[in-house]
């Protein structure tokens, strides 16, 4: 039970910091909307909806990367991470708290971005939305671990996309498949499988990347 309390406290801390500083969410929102506008000009007339769905996924992944790049910055700037690692709680709780907070930001950005996508480009059905949610979980789970690794390196902002993009390819396949394939459920299964495996792996390995 204490584990869940720790996770809740850590998530609340991140949400409160964001509420006061407003560093991440406005940036993600503005970024995803600007990207959608750029896509309008990048897509020639008559390209069709499928291309728009593909680009939506590019926008989602890059918005998530933007959020993830900021995820550990407060911890590093004020030396909070050392304190968290020394705290008498399971270290994986730090990862889970960060993942949930990043997921909350990403979903909040999409609450604005997805309706905008529907208005600008093409409709999204229920399977596509389920795909977005499942892929969000996967990218935040893997991404917050990778961001923790990148944050302790010399080239953190440059490194994060390089680490995450090859790992995100199955998510993009799943997300695009769920949006455009008539058998979208198969892609949801792929996404769920990905989430399960990589969430457990990230959860189990987080301790190793933050301890000295």
């Amino acid at each position: 039970m204490t584990y869940l309390t720790d996770v809740a406290a850590l998530t609340r801390k991140d949400l409160r910091v964001e509420l006061r500083a407003r560093d991440t969410l406005p940036a993600m929102l503005l970024f995803v909307l600007s990207t959608l506008v750029v896509f309008h000009f990048a897509l020639p007339e008559g390209t069709g909806d499928d291309a728009a769905y593909g680009l939506l996924w590019v926008a989602i992944v890059f918005t998530a990367l933007l959020g993830l790049a900021r995820a550990w910055v407060p911890e590093h700037e004020h030396g909070v991470l050392d304190g968290l690692v020394l705290a008498p709680s399971d270290r994986s709780a730090i990862w889970l708290g960060k993942t949930l907070a990043t997921l909350a930001f990403l979903v909040a950005a999409q609450v604005v971005a997805l309706p905008a996508f529907v208005v600008f480009f093409a409709p999204l059905d229920l399977t596509a939305l389920a795909g977005v949610l499942l892929a969000d979980i996967g990218i935040c789970a893997v991404g917050s671990l990778m961001a923790a690794m990148a944050a302790s390196s010399r080239s953190r902002e440059v490194l994060l996309p390089l680490l995450v993009l090859p790992l995100a390819i199955p998510l993009i396949v799943g997300g695009v498949g769920a949006a455009i394939s008539p058998e979208g459920e198969r892609y949801l299964l792929l996404l769920a499988l990905y989430d399960g495996i990589f969430a457990v792996l990230s959860w189990a390995s987080f301790e190793y990347v933050v301890t000295e």
Binding site: D50, P166, L167, I169, P170, V173, G174, V176, G177, I180, S181, E183, R186, Y187, L190, L193, Y194, I197, F198, L201
Partner: peptide, 16 residues
């Protein structure tokens, strides 16, 4: 872990 998952994803991506 990425090897089998990517393989599965690439197989599925063939369809579309």
């Amino acid at each position: 872990v990425l090897i089998p998952i990517s393989f599965l994803a690439i197989r599925l991506a063939e369809d579309f």
